[in-house]
């Protein structure tokens, strides 16, 4: 420990004083959460139906106003026809209701036909009810009750946040091993080899530092998600921490495996980009796999990040897993062991 802690401290200082790597490890994920959160943040949210109400005379208007305004699911805007249709085209109204003296006309945005039918049904039911009441037949109809059921509700941002964390930890594991390559290339490792310090301690301290950064990243990303978008906080910390350690270890091992195949920092950067770039976009960490075409889903199933993201979604925000936690575990374990063996086989200290 007397040797280990100063080494860990040295690594931390060396990284902390490098503004670029600080940005990539901490600033970049926050920026990611923030931007994508703003883009996707609202999607999947239930918002009230917005109705444009246009009066052009007629006897039905009295009932119409009261009808629409008393329904809590509607938000009504009274306006003239031209501006109401303009707002509809811009997507600011779901349905425009025109009382034109002869009857009621509904105009709707073609993507929101379901909402138009809903409104039409509601209005028709109202007039039917009036008529039945007038005929004295109303009381025989059994009442229809609406009851909301509590189900977990996931917004796009809930799905997205664990993906950002998985991506950040993947990048930490892969790009982090560049530090070692640069120590190797600059012969710092050789210099340390002339001291009584065993070299594997150097590597060990590097890995410990990486794990420390992994937990800092986790804290930062979860906090950012909560502060900006109120993404629920994880309730069980132990499984989350365990997954983070395990997943980070997998990608750290993969990173060392990749850099043991090449000599220089430049070629190490190249080979890491080659692996991390497709992984970032094809792992389904940013959107549900249902949004992907069939062929890409096959590719997704080959990438370790898909399984890490899947497990993190479960551990962080309790989204049901897609592959099952034990599959996630086994696939990641396979990658961890495979890359570890390869790294040992091709390892070079100098």
């Amino acid at each position: 420990m007397k040797v280990f802690l100063p080494l860990v401290g040295a690594h931390l200082k060396n990284i902390y004083r490098d503004r670029m790597s600080l940005f990539w490890f901490l600033g970049f994920p926050i920026l990611f959460v923030f931007l994508f959160g703003i883009i996707f943040g609202g999607m999947g949210d239930s918002s009230p139906l917005v109705l444009g109400i246009v009066f052009q005379g007629g006897v039905l208007e009295q009932g119409g106003i009261a009808l629409c305004e008393e329904n809590p699911a509607f938000r009504c805007v009274q306006e003239d026809l031209a501006s109401s249709l303009e707002a509809l085209k811009q997507g600011k109204r779901d349905v425009v209701i025109v009382f034109d003296g002869e009857g009621i006309r509904l105009s709707y945005h073609p993507e929101r036909i379901d909402r138009a039918h809903l409104v039409a049904g509601y209005i028709q039911r109202f007039f039917l009810e009036e008529r039945l009441r007038a005929l004295g037949a109303w009381s025989n109809i059994p009442p229809v009750r609406l009851e909301a059921v509590e189900v977990p509700h996931f917004r796009q941002i809930d799905y997205f946040l664990p993906g950002v964390l998985a991506m950040a930890l993947m990048q930490l594991g892969l790009f982090g091993s560049l530090d070692f390559v640069s120590l190797r290339e600059r012969k710092i490792i050789r210099q340390l080899g002339a001291t009584p310090l065993p070299k594997r301690w150097l590597l060990g301290s590097e890995i410990v530092v990486r794990m420390i950064i992994a937990f800092v990243q986790t804290g930062v990303i979860i906090t950012a998600g909560w502060v900006f978008f109120r993404v629920r906080l994880p309730h069980a910390l132990v499984p989350l921490f365990a997954w983070i350690l395990f997943g980070s270890a997998t990608f750290v091992s993969l990173g060392y495996c990749l850099v043991s195949l090449v000599r220089t920092v430049e070629s190490a950067e190249g080979i890491i980009q080659m692996v991390q770039f497709p992984m970032m976009f094809l792992s389904g960490i940013f959107f549900p796999p249902e949004m992907m075409p069939e062929t890409l889903r096959l590719v997704m199933k080959l990438l370790p990040l898909s399984y890490f993201g899947d497990a993190l979604r479960k551990a962080m925000v309790d989204i049901p897993t897609q592959f099952g936690l034990s599959t996630d575990f086994l696939v990641l374990l396979g990658w961890l062991c495979g890359s570890f063996v390869l790294a040992l086989r091709f390892w070079r200290w100098e």
């Binding site: 100063p6 040295a10 690594h11 060396n14 004083r17 050789r190």
Partner: peptide, 27 residues
């Protein structure tokens, strides 16, 4: 104690920190 030609160290540690770090390796 060894001084190598063209030796390099952690670039963003100070001189004192580097000396302290190397000192911690020796009994």
């Amino acid at each position: 104690g060894v001084q190598l030609q063209m030796a390099q160290f952690f670039p963003r540690l100070s001189v004192l920190e580097t000396i302290r770090l190397f000192g911690s390796f020796y009994p």
